[in-house]
Amino acid sequence: MFRLPADKVLQRALFVVALLTASLVGLIILFVLRETLPALQSPGITRFVTDESWHPLEGKFGMLPMLWGTLFSTTLAVLLATPLGIGMAVFCRYVAPPALVSTFRGLVTLLAGIPSVVFGFWGLTVLVPLIARVEPPGASLLAASLILAIMILPTVALMSEAALAAIPESYAQGAAALGLGRRATVLRVMLPAAKSGIIAAVILATARALGETMAVLMVSGNVVETPTSLFAPIRTLTANIALEMAYATKFHRASLFVSGLVLTAVIMLLAWLAYRAEHHIQKATGVLHAA
């Protein structure tokens, strides 16, 4: 196609800007990697798993208690949020009176936009004292999981609802033709048909819970110990970074960057899995449409 010279210049300039912006990701990875380099030197990267405790100022760098803290709180949060979130999606789509639907969806969207520091603050001033009444200290694995669950609920609910909405009309018609009730239609036809989308929702919610920092930091007590009960305080890997970056130096600082890098890698992997799961549903429904 004919192009004016000015347009060619514009196109080249914009392309350069686009490339520079894209290389930002490379820059981020490069700089985080660069800061992890001191971790390869003495006392060595294996200390993260072989040391029995985390006392960086005394040369102990065991990260396993915090890894458990992250894994336990995330798992519990996902276990709580998944059934509730799917329940909310089903409610919104098949059960709620039509007048309520848009208000309900609006509130869930609002919930999704609340900053994590607000969840953390509210958890700390209201939820933690309540839990402390049952069993002190209150700031605990339970508090962290509850707050995380509330935070990832909108992701599960909104994405599951979108997956349910994407099911072709013919599925509902088929179910109706067989005389299925609402329960059977939803549980045995709709939810199985939306399975891939719902799995993607849960995976993305897991990624969000893994990367969450402030809310967990504020309600979990931050004691570096492998939790033995729901009421035990925990410290997650992300909270550890936020707490110690300010004064960490050398190997200590590098170890914080290592945990950040590993978390990012895991989150990227989850995002990719979620993408694959969603892609799967598109293919599946496409084939059914043709048939």
Partner: peptide
């Protein structure tokens, strides 16, 4: 497509890691 993928990656990086990067860079 490559730029699109890097944008998705950028959107997925947890905020604490942006903090680490911002501090280092």
């Amino acid at each position: 497509r490559a730029i699109g993928i890097t944008l998705d990656v950028l959107a997925g990086i947890p905020s604490i890691v942006f903090g680490l990067f911002g501090n280092a860079f």
